[in-house]
Design a protein around this nucleic acid. Structure first.
Lengths: 251, 251
DNA sequence: ACCTGAACACCGTTCAAGT
DNA sequence: ACCTGAACACCGTTCAAGT
C-alpha cells in the first residue's frame, strides 16, 4: 500500500509504530520498566534514539501505546472465554465477571510493570475502554441500573483490570524474621531489639503477623501473603456487595 | 545537646532533617511532586543541593521521610477523634473504622501528591504501621480473627489510608462533550464523529455516561463523578462485607 | 562537622543536517 | 520521507576541596 521500497532492502526491517511498541513491551518484560528508556529501546531496535520520534510523539505516547498492546492482549484472552448463553439467569453476571477479571489478571501477571503504567495514564485508549464496556454489559445483564454500574466501576477501581493497589505488602524476609528470627547472627540482636520495640508500638500488627504466619501450609497463606488468594477475597467482597445492591434495586 | 554554635549565628537557620522534610512537603503541596527535586528543594532552603545529603541519604530516603510527615499528620488527626468507649458493642468497630479512614482521607486530600508517593514505598515506616495497627485494633474489637483481619487489610488496600486507585476517571470535559456537545465549533465535528464511533464500539459505556450525566444535581453526581461519594460507596461495600464475615465467624 | 562547586552518568528532547 | 549526530536542559549523585 505504501510507496514501494528499493529492491533488496529487507522489508522486515521497516520500522513501524507496532514494531516499536512490541519491542518496548518485550524490553519491559525482560528488564523492567526502569530499563525502558528511549535510548535503550532504540538500542534494542538497532537504531538511534531520535528515530523513535518518527513513530511515537514522545515518551508519554510510547507508554500510551504500550498500554494498548497489553489491553489488546487482555481483550484477546477475554474473547476466548465462553460467552453468557442467551438463556442465562440474571445471577450469571457475577461468575462471568469474576472469570473475566481473573483472565485480565492472568495477562497482567505476565507483564508485572503494566499496572504501574496503567495507573499513570489519564485518558484511556479504546482498547481499555472496550474492556470496561464488556464489564458494564455484564452488569446490565445482571439487572444493574446505570447509576449502580457507575458506582460499581468506581468501587472496583483497579480490580476491574485484575490488580489491586497493595499498600500492605510485607516481604517474605520481614515476615520470616518476625515469626521465627533471623538467620544472620550479626543482625539477629538488632532484629530482636527492633521486634521488641515494634511489639510495644504496634502490638496488634505484631500479633497478627505471628498468628497468620503460624498457619503455614494449612490455609491460604503460604509464606505470608498469597496475592492471588487475597485478590480474589477482595474481589468477591465487592461482587457480593454489588449483587445484593442489584437485588435491592429490582425490588 | 549538640556542640554549641558560635554566638551570633541565628539558630533557626540550622538545617535539620525535620526542616528538610517540612520544606519538601511544603514544596510538593505548592508546586506538585514533579517540582520536588533535590536541586529545587535546596533552592527553597537557600542552600546547595549537595548539602541535603547530610540530612537525607538520597532521594528515596527523602521520599520516605516525606511520607512519615504525612503519616504523622494523619495520626494527629485520628488521635483527636473520640475513642471507642469501653462499653461499646462489637458492632461499633464499623462506624469507628469508617470515621478513622475518612479522617485519613481528609489529610491526604490536603496533600494530593502523597498517595503517589505512598504507592511507591516498599517498606513502611513506623508512623504508617502505627496507623494500620489502630485499624487492626478496631477490627479485633469487632471480634475479627487475625486471619480475617489479614484478609481485610488486603481487601481494603489503599482505601485503608483514605484513597482509591481510580482507573476510571473521565475528566469533566470529556463527560460534558459526551452528554451535551462541545462548545468549540471547529472541534465539534471531530467530537461528534468520535462519539458516533465510540457509540458503536463501546455502547454500554456511552449509554452509562449519558444516563448518569443527566441526573445533574438530583443525586450524588455533580458534574460527573463525586470522588468523595464514590470513595465512601466502595468503602462501605467492603466494610459491610467484612462485618458479615465477622458475624459468620462468631457463630 | 558541615557545606560547596565542579564534574559524571544518566534522562527526554530540539535542531540542523544528512541520505 | 526517514534517519542521524551533536547539543541542550534537566536529573540524582560522587568526589575532592573548602571552612
Amino acid at each position: 500500500m505504501t510507496s514501494p521500497r528499493t529492491a533488496g532492502t529487507a522489508p522486515r526491517s521497516v520500522l513501524t509504530r507496532a514494531r516499536v511498541l512490541e519491542s518496548a513491551v518485550a524490553l519491559a518484560d525482560r528488564e523492567g520498566l526502569g530499563a525502558l528508556t528511549m535510548r535503550s529501546l532504540a538500542r534494542e531496535l538497532g537504531i538511534e534514539a531520535m528515530s523513535l520520534y518518527h513513530h511515537v510523539a514522545n515518551k508519554e505516547d510510547l507508554l500510551d501505546g504500550v498500554v494498548d498492546v497489553v489491553a489488546a492482549e487482555i481483550q484477546d484472552a477475554v474473547a476466548q472465554l465462553d460467552p453468557l448463553s442467551d438463556g442465562a439467569p440474571r445471577s450469571a453476571w457475577k461468575p462471568a465477571m469474576r472469570r473475566q477479571i481473573l483472565t485480565a489478571r492472568a495477562v497482567l501477571l505476565r507483564h508485572p510493570w503494566a499496572s504501574t503504567v496503567l495507573e499513570t495514564r489519564k485518558n484511556f485508549s479504546l482498547p481499555v475502554i472496550r474492556y470496561y464496556d464488556s464489564l458494564i454489559g455484564l452488569m446490565r445483564r445482571g439487572g444493574f441500573s446505570y447509576d449502580l454500574v457507575h458506582h460499581a466501576m468506581h468501587a472496583l477501581g483497579s480490580r476491574a483490570l485484575g490488580f489491586s493497589q497493595e499498600l500492605f505488602e510485607p516481604d517474605g524476609a520481614t515476615a520470616g524474621s518476625a515469626a521465627g528470627g533471623g538467620t544472620k547472627e550479626g543482625a539477629d540482636d538488632a532484629a530482636t531489639a527492633m521486634l521488641r520495640q515494634m511489639a510495644e508500638q504496634v502490638p496488634h500488627m505484631v500479633e497478627m503477623m505471628a498468628a497468620v504466619s503460624h498457619e503455614d501450609g494449612t490455609g491460604s497463606t503460604l509464606g505470608w501473603c498469597d496475592d492471588q488468594t487475597e485478590f480474589e477475597f477482595g474481589l468477591d467482597i465487592i461482587l457480593d456487595g454489588l449483587d445484593r445492591m442489584a437485588e435491592r434495586e429490582r425490588r
